[in-house]
Design a protein around this nucleic acid. Structure first.
Length: 271
DNA sequence: AGACAGACCTGTGAGC
DNA sequence: TGCTCACAGGTCTGTC
């Protein structure tokens, strides 16, 4: 599920409720999600204060006074704040009881998400070292993308979804940004010129910023920290619109699998 | 090294 | 109604 805007929305919603709170108790309801949930973490977590929460790539970083918690929401994960009297739902795998009585719950039906604990900043940074630059940073520009793409034969859509190049762009926003830039998803990345990369970067930033402003995209089960959906899905031009008329030229939207992922584009608007 | 397929999971909707 | 199948927002690993 969550691409950068959904993670950003989650972090924004969690800041106020959890920053400065102390972890009173932690429940692991499984031994593992994607990776093992180690019982030894429980002692570290109990009594820890949450100093800050932030996002890096599609990851959520919680800085505690004794450690760092790193969350990935995978495809169907969500983190939400609930009252103590709200019943645990199916697929609530982790519950963190906070001072003040609220509970932070990690919900993830498909269990592609994960939670990791690091006891030093170096270990945390090491685990983040393979990620590329942030798409909303000034460093992400057309020249960067153009330079990284030289000699690459892979489809440009797969290229911009490569987290070691630029982080946070997933299947939905890759399709949307390529549509807005007028670039076909299957075009080899190395064959695209600087001018078109300038345009693509502009549209990646625009699509992500607009999605953040709308609280992300909810196709099925994304919900933010307050259990509310996002509203960006009503602004989608191509994603999930196979055979429907292009909103610019009425040509039926085409679908194609690239790198195992459904890709949507307009044969007339995207070349 | 780069590109691709397959694996990891459960839920949902379509088609029979 | 109930079965089977394909597919879903993301990584990670193995293979060619």
């Amino acid at each position: 599920m969550p691409e950068l805007p959904e993670v950003e929305t989650t972090v924004a919603g969690l800041k106020h409720p959890i920053q400065g709170k102390t972890i009173v108790a932690v429940d692991f309801h499984r031994d593992a999600i994607r990776y093992p949930l180690k019982r030894s973490w429980l002692d570290t977590l109990r009594g820890s204060r949450i100093l800050s929460i932030s996002r890096r790539a599609k990851l959520i970083v919680m800085e505690l006074d004794k450690a760092y918690l790193l969350w990935h929401l995978g495809m169907t994960g969500s983190l939400r704040i609930s009252r103590a009297d709200e019943a645990k739902r199916k697929h609530d795998h982790v519950e963190i009881h906070l001072s003040g009585g609220k509970i932070l719950r990690f919900h993830d039906p498909r269990r592609f998400g994960y939670l990791k604990l690091f006891t030093s900043k170096d270990a945390l940074l090491e685990s983040l070292s393979n990620y590329g630059i942030e798409p909303l940073s000034a460093a992400f520009d057309g020249d960067y993308l153009c330079q990284r793409s030289r000699h690459k034969k892979q489809p440009v859509k797969n290229f911009i979804m490569d987290q070691s190049v630029v982080v946070g762009v997933g299947n939905i926003y890759a399709c949307e940004a390529l549509f807005l830039a007028g670039i076909r998803p299957q075009t080899p990345a190395g064959k695209i010129g600087r001018q078109r990369y300038l345009c693509l970067v502009k549209n990646i930033k625009a699509v992500l910023e607009k999605a953040i402003a709308q609280g992300g995209t909810t196709l099925k089960d994304f919900e933010n920290a307050e259990a509310k959906p996002g509203y960006f899905q009503q602004f989608l031009y191509v994603y999930g619109r196979e055979s429907l008329p292009c909103l610019h030229c009425q040509t039926p939207i085409a679908a194609k699998r690239l790198g195992g992922r459904s890709s949507f584009y307009c044969k007339k608007c995207q070349r």
